[in-house]
């Protein structure tokens, strides 16, 4: 099965490849893997005022996994944290025209987004300002 043009494009020109410092303020890091094929994906977001201002990824795996995470970082930029949580793997499948055997790559990307968001939220909750602490204690 040949890769779709969009997959090839993301593979040849990956968007937002790289990484942030994990400890940096507002950075959320998600590292996930697919036990079936052994692919490993790292996806990071940088959040300011509840909006994702930047996103980066590093994926070691097949073309579809690289394309899925590359696309994910494109979509993440400009979204609020809540909006980002709603990205579904099926949208990635559609956009990239992934064949059935590669659907798990899009699932991996969705998992990575969720993991990055969770990491960000956890950091935001434990770090800092009195109001935030009060707000999260109330919930």
């Amino acid at each position: 099965m040949a890769y779709s043009e969009k997959v090839i494009d993301h593979y040849n020109n990956p968007r937002n490849m790289g990484s942030f410092k994990k400890e940096e303020d507002g950075v959320g890091t998600g590292i996930v893997g697919a036990p079936e094929c052994g692919d490993v994906m790292k996806l990071q977001i940088k959040v300011e005022n509840d909006t994702i201002v930047d996103a980066k990824f590093k994926t070691f795996g097949c073309g579809s996994a690289i394309a899925s995470s590359s696309l994910a970082t494109e979509w993440l930029k400009g979204k609020t944290v809540d909006e980002a949580g709603q990205i579904k793997n099926t949208e990635i499948v559609q956009e990239l025209n992934l064949p059935p055997v590669k659907i798990h790559c899009s699932v991996l990307a969705e998992d990575a987004i969720k993991a990055a968001l969770n990491d960000y939220k956890k950091k935001a909750a434990t770090a800092t300002t009195p109001e935030e602490t009060a707000a999260s204690a109330g919930s």
């Binding site: 590292i31 996930v32 893997g33 036990p35 490993v40 790292k42 590093k58 070691f60």
Partner: peptide, 16 residues
């Protein structure tokens, strides 16, 4: 489904 091996992932990323 097993818990993902976070340490191993870190190690792999560094190696990569």
């Amino acid at each position: 489904r097993s818990t993902p091996p976070a340490d191993l992932f870190e190690e792999i990323l560094e190696l990569q």
